[in-house]
């Protein structure tokens, strides 16, 4: 299976190791991984800010860069959903581009979904140990149905126990540009999420979207809590 990795702009900027972990996992699943060099961002910040023109421009760029590949995988439910479920509508006015977006859409996957349901990964290259709690990111959960996939994978790690926090499916308050437009509200929502994380008493909190994870990490640190905040790819590919 040939897979093009959509790194995502946040991973590129903030946590390159998540991108490498994703590559390691895809290779462990028997995939050949390609990283298209010209990729930047899926355009979701523009889309969610109401700038359709900018979002459409970036959507075309992504479609052109990735349409030749058998599969596209992103370590983010939010970015995968943008390409999979929003591009066709965003490019609806242009029949040619719309068709190309539709043709690409069904081949775009969130990482854990791809590993479980498409690549059917057998052995995970991880000897991670500890008790983890998993935060379900909203878009992955509610638009792509990412719920059991990360848990199934974590269950396969013999040294790992997953302890569910209360309100795991509740929003962490990130919301993309919301977090910088309404910082106070965003942080107040994050505080509730962090309270739930802290009361579960896990060794680390894990999630599938870096935006949420940066929000949670920032809030935990402000609360004086040093609980590690990890991307699911880091746990599944790494060791500790």
């Amino acid at each position: 299976m040939r897979v093009a990795l959509f790194v995502t702009c946040l991973v590129d900027l903030m946590r390159p190791r998540i991108g490498f972990a994703a590559i390691r996992l895809l290779e462990a699943a028997g995939c050949e991984v390609i990283v298209p060099e010209s990729q930047t961002c899926c355009g979701q910040p523009a889309f969610n800010s109401g700038d359709r023109a900018a979002a459409a421009m970036l959507a075309k760029k992504v479609v052109a860069e990735f349409e030749a590949h058998e599969y596209v995988v992103a370590p983010s439910g939010s970015c995968a959903d943008q390409i999979r479920n929003e591009y066709p509508g965003l490019l609806a006015d242009d029949p040619d581009w719309h068709d190309r977006a539709v043709a690409l859409a069904s081949r775009v996957f969130e990482l854990t979904d791809f590993l479980v349901n498409v690549a059917r990964i057998d052995k995970l290259p991880s000897d991670f140990t500890g008790t983890l709690t998993y935060h379900d990111s909203c878009t992955g959960l509610r638009s792509l149905g990412i719920k059991s996939q990360p848990r199934q994978l974590l269950d396969r790690l013999p040294g790992v126990t997953v302890r569910e926090m209360s309100g795991a499916e509740e929003c962490c308050g990130f919301g993309g540009t919301f977090s910088v437009k309404f910082g106070e509200i965003s942080a107040a929502i994050a505080e509730r999420k962090c309270d739930n994380i802290r009361s579960v008493g896990a060794d680390a909190v894990v999630g599938g979207d870096l935006g949420c994870l940066l929000n949670i990490e920032g809030k935990l640190r402000r609360m004086g809590d040093e609980t590690p905040v990890l991307h699911i790819a880091e746990v599944l590919a790494g060791s500790r």
Binding site: M14, E184, G218, K219
Partner: peptide
């Protein structure tokens, strides 16, 4: 992005 750090830290990049 001052709004971000009103109520939380901004994690350092790698």
């Amino acid at each position: 992005a001052p709004e971000w750090t009103v109520g939380r830290d901004f994690p350092a990049p790698q």
